[in-house]
Design a protein around this nucleic acid. Sequence first.
DNA 1: ACGTGTGAACCGTTTCACAGCG
DNA 2: CGCTGTGAAACGGTTCACACGT
Lengths: 219, 219
Amino acid sequence: MSHQRPRIPEATVARLAVYLRVLTGLADGGRSNVSSGELASAAGVNPAGLRKDLSHLGPCGVRGVGYEVATLRDRIAGVLGVERSRACVLVGIGNLGAALADYAGFGSRGFRFIGLFDADPARVGVAVGGQAVRPMEQLDEVVAATAATIGVIATPAEVAQSVCDRLTAAGVRSILNFAPVALSAPAGVDVRQVDLSVELQVLAFLGQQRAAAPVEVLA
Amino acid sequence: MSHQRPRIPEATVARLAVYLRVLTGLADGGRSNVSSGELASAAGVNPAGLRKDLSHLGPCGVRGVGYEVATLRDRIAGVLGVERSRACVLVGIGNLGAALADYAGFGSRGFRFIGLFDADPARVGVAVGGQAVRPMEQLDEVVAATAATIGVIATPAEVAQSVCDRLTAAGVRSILNFAPVALSAPAGVDVRQVDLSVELQVLAFLGQQRAAAPVEVLA
DNA sequence: ACGTGTGAACCGTTTCACAGCG
DNA sequence: CGCTGTGAAACGGTTCACACGT
């Protein structure tokens, strides 16, 4: 179908997702076209970089004019595969897990949580984000039955690796990990780590570094 | 005090935070020394990269032996500034905000939430993570009184920019933003973006790309 | 002999400047 | 003339290989 074999850089993919969100908002607002400059500032990136990102999808703008909002949105959505609904399972329904299960941003991007799991019997059966939390025992059958390929881990660090092992054994090929531990998974399984306290720590470091260098006057 | 002016790369800072967590765990487990290989695999990085990261702090290992756990931990903690407690304010106490307020990982890294704020009267006064949610009106005075320098935004996207404006006006210099919009802040203010659905989207893209390239046989 | 510390090659990404097309 | 699309240069970060110290 698509004729662009040269694979898209990962950094670009992440930004395409951002452009898609901005374009969707623009389209809902009735806008029909944008320039790279305007789109770039709304997405928080450099205009030239945005154009380079879009160049990976082949020409999709009009020179001297800009981009047609709806067309570009659909193009990016197609590349990202947003049209197909992705079945996800979420393990660990604590505060963070419940927040994720309830997060509206996922559904509109084509992600459906088809199973919420927790090892704590006190949480099993409780309704979160419109569905009941299931016991861990059901994990394998639900993954098998729904062909879920994405797993999200929001458990305590101590059990994250064993949950990862169970998910991959059940057939999950992509894992988003919120537990503060490095996971090891078999080859062919992608693991992406989101570490909230690391983000804060980096921010704090940059702040203290800035405070220690008061020399930054006009040129 | 410190004699290493050449500034530490941001990517390295993020990993130092990870090493620190691993080292803390090792020290609590009674271990007294580690090799770069062992530490690297526990942190999920390349051994050579780890040594390069540590080289930014000056020599802190023993050749032919490895690193002393407690010493290295304290060295990294010092650079990252973990010893000093950082006052943070959190705005937007929905599901995600409540999860953040309750997240144990922050407290042990020196971050204290000294104020939780929400615009919704129904949420004001509710106890979350051991303290009562305050109305937005109190934001300025609390920031001023506590000299908080870090703000965390977990509001809906529509109000995130105005919250950002208020935070920076009140004196906050570092912002961690969970709302899915690009924020613009005055120069001298660091903004770090965490976008949960972008993470999932990248993961899904990598998965579909992998599935489309079944050719990956032995060499 | 072993593992750290580091200069140098390597790779991916960002930025720039301009050619090309409407 | 304006804005897109893109080669080429500049940058930052990662990987490699090996010298050094113990």
